[in-house]
Design a protein around this nucleic acid. Structure first.
Lengths: 365, 365
DNA sequence: GAGGCCCCTCGAAACGTTTCGAGAGGCCTC
DNA sequence: GAGGCCTCTCGAAACGTTTCGAGGGGCCTC
């Protein structure tokens, strides 16, 4: 008796009220006299009652007040990436304001032979809405699972998924602005360093066949913007992860492939700031100057306190994007409103881009 | 009818079996003939049944299969800090392996006049165990709340909380090894840059009164190790957050307070790698060399790809610590076993520490 | 003083599942 | 051929809460 955890019924009995009244005292959702509430709360304290049992509440009300947040393929990668972290940050604060909890869900359990296993949490955990932070297509097995469970979805950076809310940024516009800035400076030969293409990651130069396999939306959008701009793109280097070391490795590969300064690409468009920063580091390592020998532009607008100089980059409102997703969740929860938002970006011109070397020191000198 | 979501009862009826048998087909926890299971599963697919309702399951079984992870005072800070991120990473993978979900819980809702408000999620969300990643004391209101709810606790880096599992690292040993390394090199005048002291954050030099107010366990352990080592500690600089910029600001304050190279401290013990890295950057900024003009040691063993050289630091097994917490959770869940673990650390001597300037260039030269 | 209205409290009915012990039926063994 | 055991299925009983409509009582107004 003293061992079993007290229930609302016990509290009600001790307070001398009905169970329904006791419930009201906690939920604050119905009319109740202050004196009655106090009586109930006192009885609760007396008995060591820790508040209504969530399971009971959830079952009866049909609400969990929990949002499942599906992050990249590995928790590790998502947490390491400041971009995801900032989005997550905006998202959690917007959800927290509505007293919604965030349940972390790994994206996929396994990736074997192209077969994607859905994480058990996605199939069994209680949640009112699911947020797919990084992309989804209609054929996505995760979408399939959620749809079957009747859980509404908010997608970040994905293809349009029927009946789901979508929040994305103007990737295309950002990259186009970058390219225009660079061509305006006189650049003619470009290389681009891309984010991972798809779940089956690899690192290296991209050929035509591989180019068709871009599956991850931001990668595709940003690559398409370069391809569509008509500039002379002499190479596409695909990375395994958006990290400094990957950017550095990419730059080393670029320098190795184009040893001759005369024919070397003069501008590098990296799809993320960390990749760009890594590229700059590798250039310095090789004794080259930025932007005198090569211009490097990034994407994200991260604040890199350790980076000397300032990256030319596309500032995307990461935290605001997260918040926007949170608002989309709340709209879905409030009245089922499906929304679609595109966040604007802004080109910031830093110290890592400048005129190409041929312009600064003409070939005939 | 076709509108309402089907329940297990509907599936059972459609499959021509009892509800309990249908339940067995999903839970895989009882004996059931393969043919029967197939029949149930087919009926489920037919009806578009997405699996057992979590609320029902939770209510009946009393298990949520969810672990509440309480992070620092602000989600933002935790996510920005690679240290937390790595711990979180290890924790989530260890929990994921047991199919336990991670519910993110902001530590406190508010901090006003020393009054700590507990986040509503802590009082109302369903969870089997709570993990306090960064510290707790017995009088902690969060501990109070959880105890009342009967939720077992795993604490990382905290005071011992009665009846809770604890996972910590050997802070003291790490700092002592650092100090010994530095005194061995001939250093005599030390400064230490500390992590935040407590929830009410401030930045600046620490006087005796403030020194009493250290509330955060790693900060206290590491500071006590310096104080107890008997070296000449000429200043304690407290930071507001463990970030590169805070370390740089601290170093600027140090250089300002000790303008004379002859009396300046020659060794800086920073309580984190980011602080140490920031300190090194600020030294370079001021035209000083590391370690020739000043030695800097950190703590954490982070991998900083952008840092030129290698930090002398104490390597703590962050991810392993997270995993260890996950194991503690599982032990608690399995049979209520309360554990207490101290993880070992290891001093790594890098390129940021060396003999003090007086030794390299004696005063009488 | 009576009628009406508002504020508060109450009882009953779900919400959908798992668990438990009982029991039916089939097969093996002696 | 009968007994026993094993495998599988079943029915009933919770699990603890919220919600809904009904209704009781007090106070204000006329």
């Amino acid at each position: 008796m003293s061992h079993a955890r007290p229930t609302l019924t016990d509290v009600a009995r001790a307070a001398g009220v009905s169970v329904s009244t006791a419930s009201l005292a906690f939920s604050a959702s119905g009319p109740i006299a202050d004196s009655t509430r106090a009586k109930v709360l006192d009885a609760a304290t007396e008995l060591g009652y820790g508040g209504p049992n969530p399971a009971g509440r959830q079952l009866r009300s049909g609400r969990y007040d929990i949002v499942g947040v599906v992050i990249g393929d590995k928790l590790k990668r998502s947490f390491r990436d400041p971009v995801s972290v900032q989005v997550l940050d905006g998202l959690t604060s917007a959800l927290g304001e509505a007293d919604l909890g965030v349940l972390l869900v790994p994206g996929v359990e396994s990736y074997v032979d192209g077969e994607i296993g859905v994480d058990p949490l996605l199939t069994s955990a209680g949640m009112d809405v699911a947020v797919l932070i990084w992309g989804a297509h209609t054929s996505d097995p995760r979408v399939e699972t959620l749809r079957k469970r009747g859980i509404p979805i908010v997608v970040g950076e994905g293809n349009e998924v029927e009946g789901s809310s979508l929040v994305e940024i103007d990737d295309h516009g950002g990259v186009v602005a970058t390219i225009e800035h660079l061509t305006g400076l006189g650049h003619e030969r470009f290389v681009t360093i891309t984010l991972p293409f798809r779940m089956g990651r690899r690192e290296g130069w991209v050929d035509d066949a591989r180019r068709e396999l871009v599956d991850w939306t931001p990668t595709r959008h940003r690559l398409d913007a370069v391809l569509g701009s008509g500039v002379d793109l002499v190479g596409i280097y695909e990375t395994e992860a958006s990290l400094v070391e990957n950017g550095a490795a990419a730059m080393r590969a670029i320098l190795e492939r184009f040893p001759d300064p005369a024919t070397r690409p003069t501008a590098v468009v990296a799809q993320s700031d960390l990749l760009a920063a890594g590229a700059v580091l590798a250039l310095h390592e090789a004794g080259l100057r930025v932007p005198e020998d090569m211009s490097v532009a990034g994407f994200d607008g991260l604040d890199l306190p350790w980076f000397s100089g300032e990256l030319t980059t596309v500032i995307q409102p990461l935290e605001a994007k997260g918040r926007e997703m949170g608002l989309a969740v709340r709209a879905l929860l409030a009245d089922g409103t499906v929304t679609r938002t595109t966040m604007p970006v802004e080109l910031r011109i830093g110290t890592t881009t400048g005129p190409p070397p041929s312009a600064a020191a003409p070939r005939n000198s």
